[in-house]
Design a protein around this nucleic acid. Structure first.
Lengths: 193, 193, 193, 193
DNA sequence: CATGAATGAGCCTTCATTCAT
DNA sequence: AATGAATGAAGGCTCATTCAT
């Protein structure tokens, strides 16, 4: 886990790049390394040195948020009510997806640019998996939803929110509503025979 | 509604263009009018004459499927069981989205290139709306899902299916499973207080 | 000079084409035969049959105006005051150039598309020539301006008016002012030795 | 006013581009950035990096000439004979317009691509304005020609020269003759009542 | 390490002209 | 004669990536 520490100036550049990328993501402007370089007042080469691809940069931008989700997931595991724990985890996940535009593409991508991203995603997946198993064992969720479905379903909700609100308002409310519906479905009895 | 019928040769080219576009869509290759022209062995100008924009071509590709959905929707309205009718309609819609890659972008697009597409989408929306109202009146669906949510939710499920299966098998099965969960949620009582 | 008379429908098409072209010229829209065809609700082929090139069409549009100028020039020749005659002729010419956008390009073009245009231009040129000679003989104009300069100078004034008024107002007033200045120069004594 | 100096290689390319453009202008070939790139044996991107638009390149080509005119204008202001000063200024301006094909379009353009061009044009305009005012005050020019007319009139003369000589000889002689006529007109008394 | 100029494939779009119907 | 579909060269512009400085 230990990376060679960057020289001080290199670290400053790294920070600037990530900060610029973050602000672009927040404004919904697609990441382009040239563009990032210009806004960070750095050479393109510098940006390429730090981030070989757009995806690598995007994953770096998403990392803090992913880490927070992982942390929250571990807290959720401590909750003794299996249903409530799962619900809290999913709620937090969807809120993040809807709030932070860097998350959806990283989560949905089949391959990762950074090993660290892969770890975080695995970690998140296994936490979700554990929460779901526990809930299933406790009999509070239907049996035909597998742990491999959690991420897709969260992404699906986030996407549905995007489709719903062409632009601005209500995104979180809508997300909550959609998640509530889905959770209702998760809790419900298995499909009719 | 009466359009001047195309000359025989023009009609043949129109067909070729749409066929090429269809096959590109099916292979997941993004539509580009130049590319379509090359593959159809036609001049670019010919393609532009028939389809002013990529979107117009994509909508044309999607049209038959949309029309089938509309037709099916009208049949569903004839079903006397409100819950079953809604379920059948949504099932069919999701199956289509997951099967035909031209559908998702057209459905999710805020603006249409072809008036006909707009009509079809309106028609689909009002059918869905009617089915949902009837089901709500019959008390078989929760009250906090509005008709404006149907399209987003269907798109969301299709997207979730994409995320789940990197592109290969099971797509329809997965879609059924996700829809079943959602339907379970729709049927369930409103969220806990 | 006698051309085979057109069939009645052909003549109607000819008229429509010219009318459309006229209106385009008046709106400052560049002539394009495809565009003309569409607006005239005729096939491109028909337009090409009547007018082999854009220039031919433009010259046709300009023809009535050129003819009127020629006619006016002949009247001017009847005026017994050589200075007044020349002035009237030039004034009328400049007014036409500034008023009718079809004139400038046709007048300035080194080669003509239609023989008739060539005749009209020659005719105009010889009228101007005659008027200038008479005025020079009468001693009311400087001697270093030749008849071959009249057309360029008129075009120059029209162009100056275009440069002056980016768009709309005052065009005729400006033209009169510029012409008055030029006429002052024509009347003035030859350049200092 | 201080611009970061270009790297040596970049400067060489800049020069090549401008040189190619200059030669194209001199041959009367319309500027096209792709074409310039090919002839300069550079990538298109390089040309676009240096000159965002055709106009920017054209203005750059015209700049030295404009600067020379500005410099000459300032010298003219030092001449104590108002009439002679104005005449010298206008003569030089027209000579430039007729000699250098890059000038006319830049001078006549309502908007500029480069701020520097705007400055030069303003500067030129105000010099002309000052010279004209002085001459008018001294009573050596008619009163109905305003400073806003100088540029149009110079452009008009250049244009007249173009119309006169299909492209070959005598251009400067012709320009002198036309300017002499115009100056005669400027000196003359106001138009008859 | 940092820089940022250079590259050029690739995409988009228009329009004058031809020719089968 | 009239039609208008087809053509495709031509021009415009962007952007991910490399590499000399």
């Amino acid at each position: 886990m230990t990376t060679t520490p960057l020289r001080k100036d290199a670290a400053r550049n790294w920070d600037r790049i990530v900060a610029v990328a973050r602000s672009l993501v927040d404004q919904g402007i697609p990441l382009q390394l040239n563009d990032v370089a210009r806004r960070a007042e750095l050479g393109v080469g510098t940006v390429y040195r730090h981030f070989a691809t757009t995806e690598a940069l995007l994953e770096t931008v998403a990392t803090p948020c992913l880490e927070a989700l992982v942390a929250h997931g571990e807290q959720a595991l401590a909750d003794t009510d299996p249903g409530r724990a799962l619900e809290a985890f999913l709620t937090r996940t969807v809120e993040a997806q809807v709030t932070d535009a860097s998350l959806a593409p990283v989560t949905a991508a089949p391959a990762d640019a950074l090993p660290h991203t892969t770890e975080l995603k695995k970690s998140l997946w296994s936490t979700g998996s554990a929460l779901l198993d526990r809930a299933r064992t406790a009999g509070v969720v239907r049996t035909d939803v597998a742990s491999a479905d959690l991420v897709p379903l969260m992404c699906g909700i986030a996407y549905a929110v995007d489709v719903h609100s062409g632009g601005s308002t209500d995104r979180i409310d809508t997300a909550h509503r959609y998640l509530a519906t889905l959770l209702g479905g998760l809790r419900a009895a298995p499909p009719r025979p």
